[in-house]
Structure formats: C-alpha cells, structure tokens
Design a protein around this nucleic acid. Structure first.
Length: 271
DNA sequence: ATTCTCACCTGCGGGC
DNA sequence: TGCCCGCAGGTGAGAA
C-alpha cells in the first residue's frame, strides 16, 4: 500500500501523540516479514522519544534503541487510547501510557524490527543502501543525474529500486514520469539533462502533493488517526488504463515492467 | 556492480 | 453460487 506519502502522513498522524510515552506492553501476532529481533518484553519500560521517517520506513526512536516499522504492501498503523477489538490481521501492538499503536497488515509483507542504533547490522541491511530523500534538500540534481547516467535499466525500475532516490513506489513513479513527459521504458542513462531536471522536480511535486492530500487510499489505507487519503482521485495515469489522458485524451496504456504495472500516455510521454 | 526473477501472504474481482 | 486465475501500494535474496 504505502509509498513515501502514505508513510509520511502516517508518521505525522501520531508522532506528537506518542512522543514521551512509556511502553507498557507488547503484542505480537502472526510472523511478519522479519522477526522483531529482540524479546518483546525487552521493550517494556522504554520511552518513545520521537518518530522519524527514512524512505518508506518509520523509525520509532526509543530512549534506548529504535523500532524500524515497514508497512509492506497492505500495512497500516492506528494509534488510539482505546483500540477496537483485535482482528485476525492485527499483528503487532505497542501499548503505552499515552495510547496503543497497532499494525494491521493482511499480507504480512510489513515488519517491525528492533535495532540498537542506525548502524547495527539489521538496520544497515534495511536502510544502508537507500538513496536520497526526495523531499529534503539532500535531493541533489547533480547526484541524481550522475546516478541515472550509470543505469541502463528502464527509468521506472530505477526509481522503484530506491538506490538513487527513496520513497517512489508504483503509483508515484508512473505519476512523476507522466508529469515529466518521460516514457517509463526509457533507459535511465538516456534521459536528457532537461528530462532529468524535469523528473527531479516532478518527483518532488507529486510526492509533496500526495502528502498534502493525505496519501492515496486505493483499498483501505488510512493514517494512524483513521483518515483516508485523497490523492488517487488526482492520478493522471495510475489505474487509468484505457481511459482518456486528462491532458490530450489519448487512451492511457498499461504495460508490465518487472511484474509491475506501468501506466503512461503514449502521446504525452513519447518514446 | 547491475539487472532480472522469484518469493513472501491474503483478499478481491472477473470470467466461466 | 462456486472455482480458478490474475492482480494488488514492497523489497531482499539469489542468480546470471
């Protein structure tokens, strides 16, 4: 489900409310993608310092150590004083004296992983290879351009890989490439300087707009306070196969790239 | 190093 | 109505 905007919207929806909380209990349901990496009882008594984000990971900083939370394809968090009755897809709960955080994740591609610090082995495995944050000042055009020059793979797949820039998933990759008038099959190294500049801006624009819209709710995403997102109604190409392009009216095309759907306008995004 | 394919898991919608 | 298939917001592992 979640790309950078959904993760960031989730973070903002509970970071302030959980900050300073003392962990009172931990619930673990069915196994997630990775194990917690410590005894759940070890977390009891620790204090939540704050919640940061790196790419599509939430980093829940504790007074000692941190929890890396990934929402996978179908995960969502909720944070409330009184959680509703636990369902079969609720697989992790962090109870605190300021409310309880619950991970709901039917497909269980998500994970909650404990790390002693950002340099520990597990944290490095998950975070070590991640690229630039697209919404920060560190998203440097020159670095982006140099990185793309080294890749022969299609630009869509280079974006999804997250080694150059993080947070762009399947929805926003198609959307950003549309805004930049670049066909998703274009080899990354063959983008012109002007195209790279346009893509750089388009990524920031589309992700920023999506955050302001509360993310995309395709199926059942909601933030930790239960709000659905609204970006999906603004999508120019994602999920619009066969429908007329919102700019030129040409039917939107759907292709497969690496087992993932890519959408583009054959006229607005020339080969 | 880069690129490609597969795997993980559950639910849903379409076609028969 | 029921069954089978393909599809879904991600990404590490392993192979070429």
């Amino acid at each position: 489900m979640p790309e950078l905007p959904e993760v960031e919207v989730t973070r903002r929806s509970f970071a302030d409310r959980i900050a300073g909380a003392r962990v009172t209990d931990v619930f673990m349901g069915k196994p997630l993608r990775w194990g917690l990496g410590c005894a759940s009882t070890d977390l009891v008594g620790r204090r939540v310092v704050g919640v940061q984000r790196r790419g599509k990971y939430l980093l829940i900083e504790l007074d000692t150590g941190l929890l890396l939370v990934h929402l996978g394809m179908s995960g969502s968090l909720s944070f409330t004083h009184q959680l509703p009755q636990r369902g079969v897809h609720d697989h992790f709960e962090l109870h605190t004296d300021q409310g309880a955080l619950r991970l709901h994740d039917p497909r269980r591609f998500g994970a909650v992983v404990y790390a002693q610090n950002a340099r520990d082995a597990m944290a490095q495995k998950l975070l070590g290879h991640l690229g630039m944050e697209p919404l920060g000042e560190e998203f440097d055009l020159k670095v982006f351009q140099a990185g793309l020059k080294r890749r022969q793979a299609p630009i869509k797949q280079v974006l999804l890989a997250g080694q150059l820039v993080v947070g762009v998933g399947n929805i926003y990759a198609s959307e950003a490439l549309f805004l930049a008038h670049i066909r998703p099959t274009r080899r990354a190294a063959r983008l012109t300087r002007v195209q790279v500049q346009g893509l750089h801006g388009a990524i920031r624009e589309v992700l920023g707009l999506a955050v302001r819209k509360g993310g995309s709710t395709l199926r059942d995403f909601s933030s930790a306070d239960g709000e659905a997102g609204h970006f999906q109604v603004d999508a120019m190409v994602y999920g619009r196969a066969g429908l007329p392009c919102r700019v030129c009216g040409t039917p939107i095309k759907l292709i497969k790239q690496g087992q993932r759907a890519s959408y583009f306008c054959p006229k607005c995004q020339p080969a």
